[in-house]
Computed example of a mutant assay.
Amino acid sequence: MELIVYLAGQIHDDWREKLRQSAEQRGLPIIFKGPQEDHDRSDDIGEVIKGKQPNAVFRDQAASEFNNLRTRIWMQKADVVIALFGEKYRQWNTAMDASIALAMGKPLILVRPESLHHPLKELAQRAQVVVETPEQALDALAYVLE
Results as ranks from 00 to 15, higher is better:
128 Q>T: 13
14 D>K: 12
34 G>T: 02
85 F>N: 04
50 K>A: 13
88 K>A: 11
12 H>V: 01
45 I>T: 04
29 P>G: 01
117 H>Q: 14
65 E>Y: 14
112 R>N: 05
70 R>V: 07
135 E>Y: 00
59 R>A: 15
58 F>D: 10
91 Q>H: 08
117 H>P: 00
86 G>E: 07
97 D>T: 09
14 D>H: 10
58 F>P: 00
116 L>T: 12
114 E>L: 12
66 F>N: 05
124 A>P: 03
71 T>Y: 05
39 H>Q: 13
46 G>N: 05
111 V>M: 08
122 E>L: 13
35 P>R: 08
138 L>W: 01
24 E>G: 04
85 F>E: 04
85 F>K: 03
7 L>V: 04
84 L>Y: 10
64 S>Y: 07
121 K>Q: 15
2 E>L: 04
91 Q>G: 07
128 Q>P: 00
3 L>M: 12
38 D>Y: 11
49 I>K: 02
95 A>V: 03
45 I>E: 02
10 Q>Y: 06
30 I>Q: 01
57 V>I: 14
60 D>V: 06
93 N>F: 05
71 T>K: 13
116 L>F: 13
112 R>E: 05
48 V>W: 05
14 D>M: 05
130 V>S: 12
16 R>G: 05
60 D>S: 15
123 L>F: 09
142 A>R: 08
5 V>Y: 01
29 P>W: 00
129 V>Y: 03
133 T>D: 05
96 M>P: 00
51 G>H: 08
70 R>L: 15
76 Q>A: 08
58 F>M: 14
20 R>P: 02
45 I>K: 02
77 K>S: 11
36 Q>K: 13
139 D>H: 05
66 F>H: 11
87 E>Q: 11
58 F>W: 06
39 H>D: 12
3 L>V: 08
124 A>M: 05
32 F>H: 04
46 G>F: 01
34 G>E: 06
121 K>W: 12
13 D>Y: 02
81 V>G: 01
121 K>I: 15
92 W>G: 03
105 G>I: 10
57 V>W: 03
73 I>R: 11
90 R>H: 12
32 F>A: 09
108 L>H: 06
92 W>K: 09
142 A>T: 10
51 G>I: 06
137 A>P: 00
24 E>R: 09
140 A>Y: 12
107 P>M: 13
58 F>V: 10
4 I>S: 09
105 G>N: 11
79 D>C: 09
